[in-house]
Amino acid sequence: MHTPNLIEVNHITKTYTEGETSTKVLKGISFTVKKGEFVAIMGPSGSGKSTLLHILGLLDEQTSGDYIFAGHNSKGFSEEALSKLRNQRIGFIFQSFNLLPKTTVLENVKLPLLYSDVPRSEWDKKATAAIELVGLSHRINQESGDLSGGEKQRVAIARALVNEPDIIFADEPTGNLDSRSGKIIMDFIQDLNENKGHTILLITHETATAEHAERIIRIYDGEIASDEKVKRRRTASDEYLK
Protein backbone atom coordinates (compact mmCIF):
# COMPACT_ATOMS: atom_id res chain seq x y z
CA MET A 1 0.00 0.00 0.00
CA HIS A 2 1.26 3.44 -0.91
CA THR A 3 1.46 5.93 1.95
CA PRO A 4 1.51 9.57 0.80
CA ASN A 5 4.39 11.83 1.67
CA LEU A 6 3.38 14.33 4.33
CA ILE A 7 6.62 16.22 3.96
CA GLU A 8 8.70 16.58 0.84
CA VAL A 9 11.86 18.66 0.98
CA ASN A 10 13.73 19.35 -2.26
CA HIS A 11 17.15 21.00 -2.22
CA ILE A 12 16.30 23.48 0.50
CA THR A 13 18.88 26.12 1.30
CA LYS A 14 18.85 28.88 3.84
CA THR A 15 21.20 31.82 3.86
CA TYR A 16 21.25 34.46 6.57
CA THR A 17 22.60 37.78 5.44
CA GLU A 18 23.75 40.29 7.96
CA GLY A 19 25.41 43.35 6.48
CA GLU A 20 28.17 42.23 4.12
CA THR A 21 28.51 38.70 5.41
CA SER A 22 26.10 35.94 4.52
CA THR A 23 26.02 32.61 6.27
CA LYS A 24 24.72 29.56 4.48
CA VAL A 25 23.04 27.51 7.20
CA LEU A 26 21.34 24.91 5.00
CA LYS A 27 23.13 23.78 1.85
CA GLY A 28 20.58 21.81 -0.12
CA ILE A 29 18.62 19.36 1.94
CA SER A 30 16.23 16.77 0.52
CA PHE A 31 14.19 14.09 2.23
CA THR A 32 10.61 12.94 2.67
CA VAL A 33 8.50 12.00 5.65
CA LYS A 34 5.53 9.71 5.23
CA LYS A 35 2.36 9.89 7.23
CA GLY A 36 2.72 7.90 10.46
CA GLU A 37 6.51 8.03 10.51
CA PHE A 38 8.67 8.94 13.52
CA VAL A 39 11.79 10.70 12.28
CA ALA A 40 14.59 12.18 14.33
CA ILE A 41 16.83 14.89 12.98
CA MET A 42 20.18 14.79 14.75
CA GLY A 43 23.10 17.08 14.65
CA PRO A 44 25.41 19.10 16.84
CA SER A 45 24.51 22.65 17.68
CA GLY A 46 25.06 24.97 14.72
CA SER A 47 24.40 22.21 12.24
CA GLY A 48 21.25 23.94 11.03
CA LYS A 49 18.72 21.52 12.48
CA SER A 50 16.72 24.23 14.27
CA THR A 51 16.60 26.33 11.12
CA LEU A 52 15.34 23.29 9.26
CA LEU A 53 12.66 22.71 11.86
CA HIS A 54 11.50 26.32 11.60
CA ILE A 55 11.14 25.96 7.85
CA LEU A 56 9.34 22.63 8.18
CA GLY A 57 7.08 24.14 10.85
CA LEU A 58 6.17 26.98 8.46
CA LEU A 59 7.64 29.52 10.87
CA ASP A 60 10.40 30.52 8.47
CA GLU A 61 10.97 30.51 4.74
CA GLN A 62 13.75 28.79 2.83
CA THR A 63 16.05 30.81 0.59
CA SER A 64 15.72 28.34 -2.28
CA GLY A 65 14.32 24.91 -2.97
CA ASP A 66 10.81 23.58 -2.48
CA TYR A 67 9.00 22.49 0.60
CA ILE A 68 5.85 20.53 -0.08
CA PHE A 69 3.66 20.12 2.98
CA ALA A 70 0.72 17.74 2.59
CA GLY A 71 0.84 18.14 -1.17
CA HIS A 72 1.02 21.95 -1.19
CA ASN A 73 4.08 24.01 -1.98
CA SER A 74 4.77 26.34 0.92
CA LYS A 75 5.57 29.19 -1.46
CA GLY A 76 1.95 29.43 -2.51
CA PHE A 77 0.62 30.32 0.92
CA SER A 78 -0.24 33.70 2.30
CA GLU A 79 0.68 34.68 5.85
CA GLU A 80 -2.91 34.00 6.83
CA ALA A 81 -2.91 30.56 5.24
CA LEU A 82 0.39 29.65 6.93
CA SER A 83 -1.08 30.61 10.29
CA LYS A 84 -4.06 28.41 9.59
CA LEU A 85 -1.84 25.46 8.63
CA ARG A 86 0.25 25.86 11.78
CA ASN A 87 -2.92 26.02 13.78
CA GLN A 88 -4.75 23.03 12.33
CA ARG A 89 -2.13 20.67 10.93
CA ILE A 90 1.01 21.24 13.00
CA GLY A 91 1.73 20.80 16.70
CA PHE A 92 4.85 22.23 18.32
CA ILE A 93 6.71 21.01 21.40
CA PHE A 94 9.57 23.24 22.52
CA GLN A 95 12.62 22.69 24.66
CA SER A 96 11.56 25.47 27.04
CA PHE A 97 7.87 24.45 27.11
CA ASN A 98 6.66 28.01 26.34
CA LEU A 99 3.62 27.92 28.56
CA LEU A 100 1.82 31.15 29.40
CA PRO A 101 2.80 32.19 32.92
CA LYS A 102 0.17 32.57 35.65
CA THR A 103 -2.29 30.72 33.47
CA THR A 104 -3.96 27.42 34.24
CA VAL A 105 -3.19 24.13 32.51
CA LEU A 106 -6.62 24.20 30.89
CA GLU A 107 -6.20 27.73 29.52
CA ASN A 108 -2.73 26.87 28.18
CA VAL A 109 -4.03 23.84 26.35
CA LYS A 110 -6.96 25.84 24.96
CA LEU A 111 -4.64 28.44 23.40
CA PRO A 112 -4.51 26.93 19.86
CA LEU A 113 -8.31 26.56 19.88
CA LEU A 114 -8.56 30.35 20.29
CA TYR A 115 -7.19 30.76 16.78
CA SER A 116 -9.06 27.82 15.24
CA ASP A 117 -12.46 27.34 13.63
CA VAL A 118 -13.50 24.94 16.39
CA PRO A 119 -16.75 26.22 17.91
CA ARG A 120 -16.32 27.60 21.38
CA SER A 121 -18.69 25.12 22.96
CA GLU A 122 -16.23 22.32 22.19
CA TRP A 123 -13.11 23.98 23.55
CA ASP A 124 -13.36 22.69 27.09
CA LYS A 125 -14.22 19.20 25.91
CA LYS A 126 -11.28 19.01 23.51
CA ALA A 127 -8.79 20.54 25.93
CA THR A 128 -9.92 18.29 28.77
CA ALA A 129 -9.53 15.24 26.56
CA ALA A 130 -5.99 16.27 25.57
CA ILE A 131 -5.06 16.88 29.21
CA GLU A 132 -6.45 13.48 30.14
CA LEU A 133 -4.36 11.91 27.40
CA VAL A 134 -1.14 13.27 28.96
CA GLY A 135 -2.35 12.18 32.40
CA LEU A 136 -2.70 15.61 33.99
CA SER A 137 -6.43 15.68 34.73
CA HIS A 138 -5.68 16.17 38.41
CA ARG A 139 -3.68 19.33 37.59
CA ILE A 140 -6.15 20.88 35.19
CA ASN A 141 -6.78 24.06 37.19
CA GLN A 142 -3.23 24.52 38.47
CA GLU A 143 -1.22 27.47 37.26
CA SER A 144 1.54 26.46 34.87
CA GLY A 145 4.20 27.86 37.19
CA ASP A 146 3.29 25.35 39.92
CA LEU A 147 4.11 22.33 37.76
CA SER A 148 7.32 20.32 37.56
CA GLY A 149 9.38 20.38 34.36
CA GLY A 150 8.03 17.03 33.19
CA GLU A 151 4.47 18.12 33.86
CA LYS A 152 5.04 21.36 31.98
CA GLN A 153 6.22 19.44 28.94
CA ARG A 154 3.18 17.20 29.15
CA VAL A 155 0.97 20.31 29.15
CA ALA A 156 2.88 21.46 26.06
CA ILE A 157 2.23 18.07 24.44
CA ALA A 158 -1.47 18.32 25.26
CA ARG A 159 -1.45 21.80 23.69
CA ALA A 160 0.24 20.40 20.58
CA LEU A 161 -2.37 17.62 20.33
CA VAL A 162 -5.51 19.63 21.02
CA ASN A 163 -6.20 20.54 17.38
CA GLU A 164 -5.46 16.96 16.22
CA PRO A 165 -2.58 17.94 13.94
CA ASP A 166 -1.13 15.87 11.06
CA ILE A 167 2.38 16.19 12.41
CA ILE A 168 4.12 17.09 15.65
CA PHE A 169 7.43 18.93 15.63
CA ALA A 170 9.37 18.37 18.83
CA ASP A 171 12.41 20.61 19.28
CA GLU A 172 14.70 19.10 21.93
CA PRO A 173 11.69 18.17 24.07
CA THR A 174 13.90 16.66 26.80
CA GLY A 175 16.54 19.39 26.74
CA ASN A 176 15.32 21.10 29.90
CA LEU A 177 14.36 17.95 31.81
CA ASP A 178 16.19 15.61 34.13
CA SER A 179 16.83 12.17 32.66
CA ARG A 180 13.91 10.50 34.39
CA SER A 181 11.35 13.08 33.27
CA GLY A 182 12.98 13.10 29.84
CA LYS A 183 12.51 9.37 29.61
CA ILE A 184 8.83 9.62 30.47
CA ILE A 185 8.32 12.31 27.85
CA MET A 186 10.13 10.29 25.16
CA ASP A 187 8.14 7.17 25.96
CA PHE A 188 5.02 9.24 25.74
CA ILE A 189 5.99 10.67 22.36
CA GLN A 190 6.86 7.21 21.12
CA ASP A 191 3.48 5.98 22.29
CA LEU A 192 1.76 8.76 20.37
CA ASN A 193 3.48 7.49 17.23
CA GLU A 194 3.13 3.75 17.69
CA ASN A 195 -0.30 3.48 19.21
CA LYS A 196 -2.11 6.71 18.24
CA GLY A 197 -0.70 7.01 14.73
CA HIS A 198 0.79 10.51 15.03
CA THR A 199 3.52 11.57 12.62
CA ILE A 200 6.43 12.95 14.62
CA LEU A 201 9.53 14.87 13.67
CA LEU A 202 11.98 15.12 16.53
CA ILE A 203 15.02 17.31 16.78
CA THR A 204 17.78 16.40 19.19
CA HIS A 205 21.51 16.23 19.62
CA GLU A 206 21.39 13.16 21.89
CA THR A 207 21.66 9.73 20.29
CA ALA A 208 19.75 8.12 23.14
CA THR A 209 16.80 10.40 22.53
CA ALA A 210 16.98 10.03 18.76
CA GLU A 211 16.89 6.24 19.02
CA HIS A 212 13.26 6.37 20.06
CA ALA A 213 12.50 7.18 16.41
CA GLU A 214 12.23 4.77 13.51
CA ARG A 215 14.63 6.71 11.37
CA ILE A 216 17.44 9.17 12.01
CA ILE A 217 18.54 11.93 9.65
CA ARG A 218 21.96 13.24 10.66
CA ILE A 219 22.89 16.78 9.68
CA TYR A 220 26.38 18.26 9.68
CA ASP A 221 27.15 21.79 8.49
CA GLY A 222 23.83 22.19 6.74
CA GLU A 223 23.98 18.97 4.80
CA ILE A 224 22.51 15.55 5.35
CA ALA A 225 25.27 13.19 6.45
CA SER A 226 23.15 10.09 6.77
CA ASP A 227 19.51 9.02 6.63
CA GLU A 228 18.90 5.53 7.96
CA LYS A 229 16.50 3.34 9.88
CA VAL A 230 17.16 2.76 13.56
CA LYS A 231 18.25 -0.85 13.93
CA ARG A 232 17.40 -1.26 17.55
CA ARG A 233 14.79 1.23 18.75
CA ARG A 234 14.70 2.26 22.35
CA THR A 235 11.44 1.52 24.08
CA ALA A 236 9.95 2.15 27.45
CA SER A 237 10.89 -1.32 28.57
CA ASP A 238 14.60 -0.65 28.02
CA GLU A 239 14.80 1.14 31.30
CA TYR A 240 13.70 -1.92 33.16
CA LEU A 241 16.24 -4.15 31.44
CA LYS A 242 19.12 -2.08 32.69
Partner: peptide, 16 residues
Amino acid sequence: TREIGLRKAVGATTKN
Protein backbone atom coordinates in the same frame (compact mmCIF):
# COMPACT_ATOMS: atom_id res chain seq x y z
CA THR B 1 8.18 38.31 23.08
CA ARG B 2 8.08 34.58 23.77
CA GLU B 3 4.34 34.66 24.33
CA ILE B 4 3.90 36.41 20.99
CA GLY B 5 6.15 33.83 19.31
CA LEU B 6 4.21 30.99 20.85
CA ARG B 7 0.86 32.45 19.86
CA LYS B 8 2.08 32.82 16.29
CA ALA B 9 3.46 29.27 16.29
CA VAL B 10 0.10 27.85 17.36
CA GLY B 11 -1.78 29.77 14.71
CA ALA B 12 -2.19 33.44 15.63
CA THR B 13 -2.03 35.74 12.62
CA THR B 14 -0.34 39.14 12.61
CA LYS B 15 -3.81 40.65 12.80
CA ASN B 16 -4.67 38.53 15.85
